[in-house]
Simulated assay, not measured.
Amino acid sequence: MYLRKYIMAPTKNNLSAVLYGINDLRLEQRPIPVPKDNQVLLQMEVVGKDVKNLKLDDRVAIEPGVPCRLCHYCKTGIYHLCKDILFCATPPDDANLSRYYVHDAKFCWKLPDNMSLEEGGFMEPLSVGVHACKRANIKIGGVCLITGACPIGLVTFLSAKAMSDFKIVITDVLDVKLKMAKQLGADYTLKIEKNMTE
């Protein structure tokens, strides 16, 4: 999940999902992390003393990757290419599958009051889809192929549909995902079999 809401009353319960290996996902209690001065504790009670852009009870969406901010990529605005970026995903970072999680405040974005938490949870994946369509220069007339009807594939599809009149083909290995893509308005769906050849 890419969004948390600050809460006022802390709990000692920080149940966390931790991936130890393939087919080895465990639930365990972990200590509630303590934020540094430039971090926030999400689902939270505490904001670091240097945080000015957020306050208690703000609802936020996060950018899951926090770069070093010192390398050439970071300084030239393409920080997603940073080699030292810490991405909150499991593995290596199990923390975002916990009830409490600390994250750099500069990579937390306050949700507007008219946006639900459910809508806010889609901001980061949707930004991936919009960025992909802009990079592919999707505008008017043509065909777009999206490989994979996973959440990122589907928001990329929705972005392409909103930005163009392209015919959209979406592929996947699972029928249930292709059915969802078709329900959302994909022009064509194609199931890829595991042993498919030319």
Rank of each mutant, 00 (worst) to 15 (best):
V47L: 15
D24T: 04
P64H: 06
G120K: 07
Y73R: 00
N114D: 15
Y100H: 05
I170H: 10
S16V: 04
L86R: 10
L15P: 02
E119W: 02
V143E: 10
Y2W: 12
P125E: 01
L41P: 06
A95L: 04
L42P: 04
D187E: 10
I62K: 00
S116E: 05
L154K: 01
M180D: 05
W109F: 15
E119C: 05
G141S: 15
G142I: 10
F107V: 08
R30L: 15
K134D: 01
V130E: 04
V143D: 04
N96Q: 03
D187I: 12
G21F: 10
S159T: 04
K49G: 00
H103C: 03
P31C: 05
F87M: 09
N13R: 12
V176I: 14
K106G: 13
A105V: 10
Y73C: 05
E63T: 06
K36S: 10
K83E: 14
G21Q: 03
P112K: 04
K12A: 15
N23F: 11
K177I: 00
K75D: 08
V155A: 04
F157A: 06
V130P: 03
K55W: 04
M8E: 13
V176L: 09
D84Y: 13
C74H: 08
A136Q: 01
I85R: 07
L56V: 08
R30I: 02
K52Q: 14
T11F: 09
L19Q: 07
D175K: 10
L25M: 13
F157L: 10
G121V: 07
A105R: 02
V173P: 01
C133M: 15
T189L: 12
L154E: 03
R135M: 09
D37M: 06
S127Y: 07
Y188Q: 03
S116L: 11
A160V: 01
T90C: 09
P31H: 03
T189G: 08
K194M: 13
K12M: 14
E28A: 09
V143R: 11
I168R: 09
K177W: 07
G153C: 12
K52E: 15
V46E: 09
A105W: 13
M44L: 06
F87C: 05
P33W: 06
E28R: 08
A181E: 11
N195H: 12
P33Q: 06
T147N: 08
P67S: 02
S159C: 10
T171I: 10
K49D: 11
V173N: 06
M163Y: 12
L97S: 06
P91F: 13
H72N: 11
D104K: 01
P125C: 03
C88F: 13
Q29H: 14
S127K: 02
V66Y: 06
N195I: 03
L70K: 11
D50S: 15
Y188D: 00
C150M: 01
T197W: 01
N96E: 00
M123P: 00
A160M: 04
Y188E: 09
